[in-house]
Design a protein around this nucleic acid. Sequence first.
DNA 1: ACGCTATATTGCCATGTAGTTGATTATTGA
DNA 2: TCAATAATCAACTACATGGCAATATAGCGT
Lengths: 110, 110
Amino acid sequence: MAKGAMTAAQLALVAERFKVLAEPVRLQLLQALMAGERTVGELVEATGLSQANVSKHLQLLLAHELVARRKEGLFAYYSLADESVFQLCDLVCSRLERATRERQRRLARG
Amino acid sequence: MAKGAMTAAQLALVAERFKVLAEPVRLQLLQALMAGERTVGELVEATGLSQANVSKHLQLLLAHELVARRKEGLFAYYSLADESVFQLCDLVCSRLERATRERQRRLARG
DNA sequence: ACGCTATATTGCCATGTAGTTGATTATTGA
DNA sequence: TCAATAATCAACTACATGGCAATATAGCGT
């Protein structure tokens, strides 16, 4: 990665990737896949979302190569295709936790 | 970070953070601040965006504590308040580059 | 061929938000 | 106090997209 400036095109690509991840439902699906590959039906059951909704989100994740698809008979098995997603989540999560801690500390002091 | 499952609330927070970053203009503003604090006017000039537009995006970044604000006379000086953003961008960027490389290699082979 | 099941797709509606324009609030200097 | 500049706010339009309902597609068994 260039330490200096990213081009507008690069920024657009990065923003696009962030946008894919900026949806709780999609994060939920990715998380559900952490345990291994799952069929659409299993993901529907795991998340409580409608089948059409799950399918649509999976299409988007697939288009961005965040998941992979394997068809077998009637079933479509989805699996993770990009482990880096969880590094991103961890980074955000730990940063949010730190912010919360500091907010509380500030509150405690006055 | 918990290795296991994140709660729905945690996922929502993480998704919200991603959403803030899922806008090229905001990434551009953050990048412009890498060199040091800047006034709104300077950011307007650096980005070519309208002043109102820049100001609105800065408000959002400020609300999410990605930037800090210092008022001095007529000017409002904005600066970075969360360096982790660039770690996120770097992760995404390197992942995208790798994907592009692999795509090209696949294309070359057939 | 037919029905049955799993998945995908399409059309629609509601919501969210980026961007513009115009008004409004500070702050400085004359 | 008045004018000029910097920044924010408010109202609006245009567009993208999440979710639902209904329909379509595809593979299996009979």
